[in-house]
């Protein structure tokens, strides 16, 4: 089916397969359609149908709040075409970076499956074609018996790879998290689409990095750390990471974080904040090079943010309430220029 989006300066056209989400079809064709979550929650991929028939998909998608039925407003990430369609998109269509990688559909197999803590699981997915992605990007995944795609940030970084590493936090009422936690899913097949997302790290930008993660928000930041480690970025550039979790028992990736600190002891600062318990005596001894704190991660991280931002890029990732709670003071009190903040809300 042919989809057409008319702008004054240009008409964009792309083919969408039956059942394929319009957003995915457009992005796959190299058209930089607007999106953020790619999974129905944020509302960024809003469009209006001016001609043609569509299947709206997930009818309760939170991103559709306040949508106007009379204007035939849809979420492109949920909607598929039932005939040729014309759409209007209420924002500019602009590429984020010249080296953005066109996302595509893949079928992957779960090859590794490991519980990191009581409620965090690490799993690897192998895909048949080798791909590249920017550190900080994510894929959307769909499991066999679960409706709809969910977004997960890659933990690993490797240009040209068949292997994608993810972590998932358990959400007892959640569809995908229930499916994957229920039993060992090694060898299960998943549908994937990606890579996606703009909260990315690019060494050529030459910034110091200030990163704040809540819980599974650490995923994409691990990919950034890994890329930085591979290219010796932290030889000359500083990175401060604040990682918020509940208790010492919830701490994962300790080995990997210690390894980055050990390789670049003078430039890397890694701070672990426990919200619900004090650090252990061993942690407080400082022997492993990491700094352990008690309290909410944003309460520790905000005072450490450099006034005015300097040449620093700020990365925020984690549950939407944490990210929202950080953006406000970052911009209003610390006067960080807004183009120095990149974030992913795990909504």
């Amino acid at each position: 089916m042919l989809i057409e989006i008319k702008k004054k300066s240009q008409t964009y056209q792309f083919e969408a397969n039956a059942g394929e989400k319009l957003l995915y079809a457009g992005l796959r064709a190299g058209i930089p359609l607007p999106f953020e979550c790619a999974t129905g929650t944020c509302g960024s991929c809003k469009a209006r149908v001016t001609q043609g028939e569509v299947d709206e998909g997930w009818s309760e998608a939170p991103g559709k709040e306040r949508f106007k039925v009379v204007k035939r407003e849809i979420l492109m990430c949920q909607c598929s075409a039932q005939s040729d369609c014309s759409l209007t998109v209420p924002t500019k269509i602009v590429a984020f970076r010249d080296d953005d990688i066109n996302p595509d559909h893949h079928i992957g197999v779960i090859t590794q499956y490991e519980k990191l803590t009581e409620d965090v699981l690490r799993f690897n997915v192998e895909i048949p074609t080798s791909i590249s992605f920017h550190a900080g990007q994510f894929f959307v995944l769909q499991a066999p018996e679960v409706n709809g795609f969910r977004a997960y940030s890659m933990v690993n970084y490797s240009p040209g790879t068949n292997e994608l590493e993810f972590i998932i936090k358990q959400n007892p009422h959640g569809g995908l998290s229930k499916w994957i936690f229920d039993s060992d899913r090694t060898q299960e097949k998943l549908e994937l689409f990606g890579p996606l997302g703009h909260a990315t790290f690019h060494p050529d930008e030459s910034h110091d990095l200030f990163m704040i993660a809540g819980g599974s928000g650490i995923a994409g930041l691990m990919s950034i750390l890994e890329y930085g480690r591979q290219v010796n970025y932290f030889k000359n550039r500083k990175v401060s990471l604040f990682f918020g979790i509940r208790t010492p028992a919830d701490f994962f990736f300790a080995e990997r974080l210690r390894a980055v600190k050990a390789k670049f002891p003078d430039t890397v600062s890694i701070n672990i904040a426990f919200s619900n318990a004090p650090p252990t005596a061993e942690q407080l001894s400082g022997n492993d090079g990491l700094i352990y704190l008690q309290g909410m991660v944003h309460e520790h991280a905000l005072p450490a943010v450099l006034e005015g931002g300097g040449n620093v890029m700020h990365y925020l990732a984690g549950p939407a309430p944490m990210v929202d709670a950080l953006i406000r003071p970052l911009i209003l009190n610390s006067k960080i220029p807004v183009h120095r903040v990149r974030y992913d809300k795990f909504s």
Binding site: G43, K46, R66, T91, D324, I331, L332, V341
Partner: peptide
């Protein structure tokens, strides 16, 4: 005016500057 988000929810106001918390237009 960026992406039609409702500013009552996304707008942060301080010192007569409004910031949309979605992509930080001001």
């Amino acid at each position: 005016p960026h992406m039609e988000q409702y500013l009552e929810g996304s707008g942060i106001c301080a010192n007569n500057v409004m910031t949309c918390d979605r992509h930080l237009w001001q």
